[in-house]
Amino acid sequence: MSVVGDRQAIIDAVKGRRSIRRFLPTPVADETVLEIIEIAARAPSGQNMQPWLIHFVTGETRDALCRQVTEAADSGERSDDYPYFPTEFREPYLSRRRKVGFDLFAIYGIERNDFEGRKRALLRNFQFFGAPVGLFFTMERDWGLGAWIDLGNIMTNVMTVARAYGLETCPQQAWAEYGRPVRKVLNLPDQHVIVSGMALGYADYEAKENQLVTERAPHQDFVIRHC
């Protein structure tokens, strides 16, 4: 079935997506979340193996996660489930990473040398930025690298499809930096890797932190054409 007629809606859904860092407390119906996930599960995967698991958390479980992971992060008790970043940053990635951090701290009104303020801002990750729904994307640890591509596909679908329901998201790999308490609350076996968390809810569009629109490199910087 052709989707040419819906081209602009699709473009807007992709180009308008951003990481929301303050949500309204408005509840999201369970049926809505499950419908989004059901649609997103049309994501491609190698030989249709669908290696992903999605944990949908609300209510008391959400609150317990927030409390225990915030305590671990505040005390510096990291327990990374896997290495996300390279051991040494290089350009242009280092500059991009610094810019988004400095831009966000500037919006919060946090000076560059205000390390306590920066820590408080980062800890907001572990409140799902106020979103009532948290999602965790996991898979069995013995999968090869291809399965990480598959899981990224379904995460992208969730973030895009959510916008069709008036909802927004923030992908949060930061939860995987505190795998021990997440694993405890969700009762996850060691053979499952916590790839990422995600906040889901209704965006507070008036919040200053949601005015941040991160830059993207022009295609000339990363597209290599072969003729």
Results as ranks from 00 to 15, higher is better:
residue 23 F to V: 03
residue 175 W to V: 10
residue 197 G to S: 10
residue 50 Q to P: 14
residue 125 N to V: 14
residue 33 V to F: 03
residue 27 P to R: 00
residue 167 L to W: 11
residue 36 I to P: 02
residue 8 Q to T: 14
residue 101 G to P: 06
residue 122 L to M: 13
residue 14 V to A: 04
residue 19 S to T: 09
residue 108 Y to P: 02
residue 132 P to T: 03
residue 151 L to S: 04
residue 122 L to W: 11
residue 114 D to N: 14
residue 78 R to H: 12
residue 5 G to T: 04
residue 87 T to G: 15
residue 225 R to F: 11
residue 163 R to V: 07
residue 69 V to T: 15
residue 39 I to E: 01
residue 191 Q to I: 12
residue 100 V to Y: 11
residue 158 V to C: 06
residue 147 A to Q: 02
residue 135 L to T: 10
residue 167 L to Q: 06
residue 2 S to V: 02
residue 124 R to Y: 07
residue 143 W to I: 10
residue 97 R to N: 12
residue 74 D to I: 01
residue 155 M to P: 05
residue 52 W to E: 00
residue 203 A to F: 05
residue 32 T to V: 15
residue 156 T to K: 08
residue 124 R to C: 08
residue 205 Y to M: 07
residue 218 P to N: 03
residue 58 T to I: 12
residue 45 S to P: 01
residue 202 Y to P: 02
residue 184 K to W: 11
residue 27 P to N: 00
residue 62 R to F: 13
residue 164 A to F: 14
residue 160 T to K: 01
residue 52 W to R: 02
residue 187 N to G: 10
residue 26 T to S: 05
residue 15 K to F: 02
residue 59 G to R: 03
residue 200 L to N: 04
residue 91 E to H: 07
residue 182 V to Q: 05
residue 54 I to H: 02
residue 123 L to R: 11
residue 227 C to K: 06
residue 57 V to F: 13
residue 149 I to H: 07
residue 205 Y to L: 09
residue 139 M to G: 02
residue 49 M to W: 00
residue 79 S to T: 12
residue 113 N to W: 11
residue 197 G to I: 13
residue 199 A to I: 14
residue 222 F to Q: 00
residue 161 V to Q: 02
residue 11 I to W: 01
residue 60 E to T: 13
residue 159 M to W: 12
residue 227 C to D: 03
residue 179 G to Y: 07
residue 133 V to W: 06
residue 142 D to P: 12
residue 104 L to A: 09
residue 137 F to H: 03
residue 51 P to I: 13
residue 130 G to Y: 05
residue 191 Q to V: 15
residue 85 F to H: 12
residue 220 Q to N: 08
residue 124 R to M: 11
residue 68 Q to H: 10
residue 48 N to L: 10
residue 64 A to G: 01
residue 35 E to Q: 10
residue 86 P to G: 10
residue 220 Q to L: 08
residue 40 A to E: 00
residue 48 N to A: 08
residue 3 V to C: 04
residue 160 T to M: 08
residue 10 I to R: 00
residue 191 Q to D: 15
residue 216 R to W: 04
residue 139 M to W: 13
residue 109 G to W: 13
residue 60 E to V: 09
residue 103 D to I: 08
residue 118 R to K: 13
residue 114 D to R: 09
residue 106 A to C: 04
residue 191 Q to S: 15
residue 188 L to C: 04
residue 73 A to T: 10
residue 118 R to V: 11
residue 118 R to H: 12
